[in-house]
Amino acid sequence: MIGLSHYLSVSAIIFSISILGLMINHRNLITLLMCIELMLLAVSTNFIAFARYLHQPAGEVFVFLILAVAAAESAIGLAILVLWFRQHHSVDVEQLNRLKG
C-alpha cells in the first residue's frame, strides 16, 4: 500500500536532487531553471499528499497558486536568459564570473 510517507519520501528525494542540481551544476543555465521547476514540483507533491491525507482542499488550492507562480518565475528566468544569450551567445554558467563574491 502506498501511503503518505512514500509520497513524502519521493518529494524529499526530488527536492534534494533539485537543490543538489542548483549547487553543483556548472554547465548550463537551462538546467538551473529546470532545477528550480523541479523544486517547486516537489513542494507541490508534498502539498497534494498532505491535502489527501488530511482530507482538506486547501493544500490543493495552494498547488494551483504554486503552479501559476512557477510559470511566472520560469518566464522571468527565460527572459533574463535570453538577454544573457544575446550578449554572450551561450548559456554557460562558467561565464558568470564578472562579479566576484
Partner: peptide, 26 residues
C-alpha cells in the same frame, strides 16, 4: 545550431497564459 530566440519569446508568453487559464477549471 541554437534555436532562434523568437521561439523562446513565444514560449515565455505561452507558459504564462497557458497556466493562468488553469484557474478557470476549478
Amino acid at each position: 545550431a541554437p534555436f532562434d530566440l523568437r521561439f523562446y519569446l513565444v514560449a515565455i508568453l505561452f507558459i504564462l497564459f497557458d497556466l493562468e487559464t488553469a484557474f478557470l477549471f476549478p
